[in-house]
Write a protein that binds this DNA or RNA. Structure first.
Length: 532
DNA sequence: CTGGGGAGGGGGCCC
DNA sequence: AGGGCCCCCTCCCCA
C-alpha cells in the first residue's frame, strides 16, 4: 500500500514536472512568436512613421503648389470648357509630366470634379481602380447605412467623408486613418485575439503563416503578375453576404491614394511587367493591413481580387448591396445622382464630368478614349501598367464608357435579361457575372494583361488579342461568297456584303438619303444636317 | 465610301 | 451554378 502511495506520488510529481515543462515550452513558443510579432510591429511602426512624415511633407508641398496652380488657372482659364480642355490635354500627354512620359501630376480633383474646383490636386482622394459592387439579395441592413453614409458624405465633402468613414472603420481619428500607422491596431488585435484562445499556439502559427504569406505576397509582386483570366476561381468576387464593407474600401482607398502620390515618380518602365511592378510594397502593405481582416477570411477575398486583376491597388472591391434596392433601371443606392460618397463619388463625379463633356461640343465630339489608346504614344507607354496614370484614365475613360453605353442603349443596370448583380464601381453598370465586370473594369483601369508575342501590343481581353494576332498570321476566316475578299472579322464581312447586296438600311430622317452603314449616315448628318 | 484594326458589351457553350 | 472561353455584334477611328 505504502509502495503504491509512493509510486503514485512519484507519478504525480513526474506528471507535474512534465506539465510544467510543457507549459514552459508553450509559453516560450508563444513568447517567441509574440516577440516576433512585436518586432515586426515595431518595424512597421517605424516605417509607417517615416512614411507618414514623408507624406505630410509631400502634402504640404503639394498643397502649396496646388494653391498656386489653382490661383493661376482660375485667373487664366476660369471656364469649364477650358478646364476640360486642359484636362484632356493632360490625358493626351500634354500635361505636366513629372516622371518621364509615363507619370504626370494627378489632375486636380480627378474624382471630385467641380466647377469651382477645377484643378484641385487632391492627393488624398482615394482611387481604387478595381471595384466591384455586388448586389446582394440579403443582408441589406448591414450595408445600407454605409452606403448612405457615403452618399451624404460624398455630397458634402468627399474628403471629409472619407476621413470619417475610415475613422469609423478603424476606430482611429480621421487623420490617423490616413496614416499608414492605423494598420497597427488591426494587427495587434489579431494577436491579442489569438493569444486568448485555447489553441493559442496553433492559431498563432496559422496567423503567422498568414502574415508571412501576406508579407511575401506584398513584397514580391511576381506572383500576382499572372494572367488574370487564367488564374481560376480566384478571379471571382466572394460569395454574397461577405463582410466586405465599403468602409474597408475607404481605408484602402485612402492609403492607396497616398501610394499613388508616392509612387508617382517610381515604378518600372518595363511594359511587360504588367501592372504590378509599379506598386509600392510599403503602401500596398499598409492598405492591406488596414482593410483586410485575415483571420476572418478577407484574405481570400483580397487575394482573389488581387489575382483577378493582378494589381494590388486595382483590387476588386466588392460591395454588397441589397438586391431589392437595385431593381429597375438603376439601383437606388447607386443611382446617378447620389450615393457614391467620398471615394466612391467617382461615379457621381464621373457623371458630372460626363455632363461637362456633353455640354461641351468640343469635348463631346472628341473621343477622349482615343487619347489613351494605342495610337497615342503616351497611352501606350503608360496605360496598361501604370496604375497612377489611371487617375486620369478612369475619369475620362469612364465618361466615354458611359457615353458609349448610353448611345448603345445600355443603362447602368437597365435592360437586364439576366440578373446583373455585379456592378462596376466606376460607372455602376451591371453585369451578370464577376468575370464580365472584371473584364469591363479594365476599361477604367487601363489594364492590358494580354500581350501579343509578335509586336508587344497589349490588350485588355484575350479575345481581342486573338483577333489582333490575325494581323500577324494573316488569318482571314471570313470570306465573301460574292467575291474573293476575305476578312479577319465577321463584322467586316457583314459590312462588306452590303456592297454586293446594295442594302442600305440606314436612312437619313432629314433628307431620306440611305446608307449602308450607320457611320456613313452619321457623317452625312454631321455634314449636311448639323444645324438641325 | 470602303477596308481594316481595335475596343467593348453581351450571350452562349462547355466544363 | 458559376467560371472560362469563344463568338457575335456594334462602334470608333484611321487610311
Amino acid at each position: 500500500m505504502a509502495n503504491c502511495m509512493v509510486f503514485h506520488t512519484q507519478i504525480a510529481s513526474i506528471m507535474e514536472v512534465l506539465a510544467n515543462a510543457a507549459v514552459a515550452e508553450i509559453c516560450k513558443l508563444v513568447d517567441d512568436d509574440y516577440a516576433v510579432f512585436r518586432l515586426e510591429i515595431t518595424q512597421s511602426q517605424k516605417e509607417n512613421r517615416t512614411l507618414r512624415r514623408k507624406l505630410l511633407e509631400l502634402k504640404v508641398a503639394r498643397e502649396r503648389a496646388e494653391r498656386t496652380a489653382r490661383e493661376r488657372v482660375l485667373a487664366i482659364r476660369p471656364s469649364r470648357v477650358k478646364i476640360l480642355d486642359r484636362y484632356r490635354g493632360m490625358a493626351r500627354g500634354e500635361g505636366h509630366l513629372t516622371g518621364g512620359n509615363r507619370s504626370f501630376v494627378k489632375p486636380a480633383g480627378h474624382n471630385t470634379w467641380r466647377d469651382d474646383q477645377p484643378i484641385t490636386v487632391d492627393e488624398r482622394s482615394g482611387f481604387s481602380t478595381q471595384n466591384i459592387i455586388v448586389i446582394e439579395s440579403a443582408d441589406s441592413e448591414a450595408v445600407g447605412p454605409v452606403v448612405k453614409q457615403e452618399r451624404s458624405g460624398g455630397e458634402e465633402d468627399p474628403q471629409h467623408s472619407r476621413d470619417i468613414q475610415t475613422g469609423a472603420a478603424s476606430g482611429a481619428p480621421p487623420v490617423a486613418t490616413e496614416d499608414p500607422a492605423t494598420a497597427q491596431p488591426r494587427t495587434r488585435h489579431s494577436i491579442t485575439e489569438v493569444s486568448g484562445t485555447q489553441n493559442a499556439v496553433l492559431k498563432s502559427e496559422t496567423d503567422t503563416e498568414t502574415l508571412t504569406v501576406t508579407h511575401r505576397f506584398l513584397h514580391t509582386g511576381s506572383d500576382h503578375r499572372s494572367d488574370p483570366e487564367r488564374l481560376g476561381p480566384l478571379g471571382c468576387p466572394p460569395a454574397p453576404g461577405s463582410e466586405y464593407l465599403p468602409v474597408f474600401h475607404q481605408s484602402q482607398r485612402t492609403v492607396n491614394s497616398r501610394g499613388d502620390v508616392d509612387a508617382l515618380d517610381t515604378g518600372g518602365d518595363d511594359p511587360s511587367c504588367s501592372y504590378t511592378t509599379e506598386m509600392d510594397p510599403g503602401n500596398i502593405s499598409l492598405g492591406l493591413e488596414t482593410q483586410t481582416d485575415l483571420s476572418r477570411g478577407d484574405w481570400n477575398r483580397y487575394s482573389s481580387s488581387v489575382y483577378s486583376e493582378g494589381c494590388l491597388d486595382k483590387k476588386g472591391e466588392v460591395i454588397v448591396v441589397d438586391e431589392g434596392k437595385v431593381e429597375g433601371d438603376a439601383p437606388p443606392t447607386w443611382n446617378a445622382d447620389s450615393h457614391l460618397g467620398d471615394g466612391h463619388s467617382q461615379g457621381r463625379d464621373f457623371l458630372n464630368y460626363r455632363g461637362s463633356l456633353e455640354t461641351n461640343a468640343n469635348v463631346a465630339t472628341h473621343s477622349s478614349l482615343d487619347a489613351f489608346r494605342g495610337r497615342d504614344p503616351v497611352f501606350t507607354s503608360m496605360a496598361p501598367s501604370d496604375s497612377h496614370g489611371q487617375i486620369l484614365f478612369d475619369q475620362v475613360l469612364n465618361s466615354n464608357d458611359r457615353a458609349r453605353a448610353q448611345t448603345q442603349g445600355e443603362g447602368a443596370t437597365s435592360g437586364n435579361s439576366k440578373e446583373k448583380r455585379f456592378l462596376c464601381m466606376f460607372c455602376k453598370k451591371g453585369f451578370s457575372c464577376s468575370q464580365k465586370v472584371e473584364r469591363h473594369q479594365r476599361v477604367h483601369t487601363g489594364e492590358k494583361p494580354f500581350s501579343c508575342t509578335q509586336c508587344e501590343k497589349r490588350f485588355s481581353r484575350q479575345d481581342n488579342l486573338k483577333m489582333h494576332q490575325r494581323v500577324h498570321t494573316g488569318e482571314k476566316p471570313f470570306s465573301c461568297t460574292q467575291c474573293h475578299m476575305r476578312f479577319a472579322q465577321a463584322g467586316h464581312l457583314k459590312m462588306h456584303l452590303k456592297v454586293h447586296t446594295g442594302e442600305r438600311p440606314f436612312n437619313c430622317t432629314h433628307c431620306g438619303k440611305r446608307f449602308s452603314e450607320r457611320r456613313n449616315l452619321r457623317i452625312h448628318q454631321q455634314k449636311n444636317h448639323a444645324t438641325l
